[in-house]
């Protein structure tokens, strides 16, 4: 059994958006937690760490947009209307493309929501 499939037709693409969201959340959370614990000995300032996390956020958003574009393409750029529920290979592809597109949208918003405190919180709580 291969871990990575040869063809696009795989459930893996479906999870791209949510996976990026989860990784982004983890990176932000862990980075801030470790920074605040070691704030006095750390080699960089809170502003620098925040800037780094903003870059991570932009990267995550770019990844999600890419996944959404691929999904849109798989969905045939919206040429057919859902539900794609016929037991055919084509409908399966279209359904998966559409579901991936929606999940990408959700992940995009979720990443933004995670990033809001980063912009507005000013420092670690002593």
């Amino acid at each position: 059994m291969r871990l990575l499939p040869k063809e696009v037709e795989s459930l893996w693409t479906l999870f791209t958006g949510p996976t990026i969201w989860a990784v982004h959340f983890l990176v932000c959370y862990v980075a801030v937690a470790i920074y605040c614990e070691k704030a006095r000995t750390g080699p960089f300032t809170f502003a620098e760490m925040r800037l780094a996390l903003v870059l991570v956020t932009l990267l995550a958003l770019a990844g999600i947009v890419l996944s959404a574009w691929l999904a849109w393409r798989q969905w045939g750029f919206g040429s057919g209307d859902p539900p794609h529920d016929a037991p055919t290979r084509e409908d399966r592809l279209l359904f998966q493309g559409f579901a991936t597109l929606l999940l990408s949208g959700l992940s995009f918003v979720a990443v933004l929501f995670v990033a809001v405190p980063l912009v507005l919180i000013e420092a670690c709580q002593p």
């Binding site: 933004l112 809001v116 919180i121």
Partner: peptide, 13 residues
């Protein structure tokens, strides 16, 4: 939700 979240987080300090 984005606006309300941002407002609440902005108020926190």
């Amino acid at each position: 939700l984005f606006a309300l979240l941002a407002y609440a987080v902005w108020l926190m300090p």
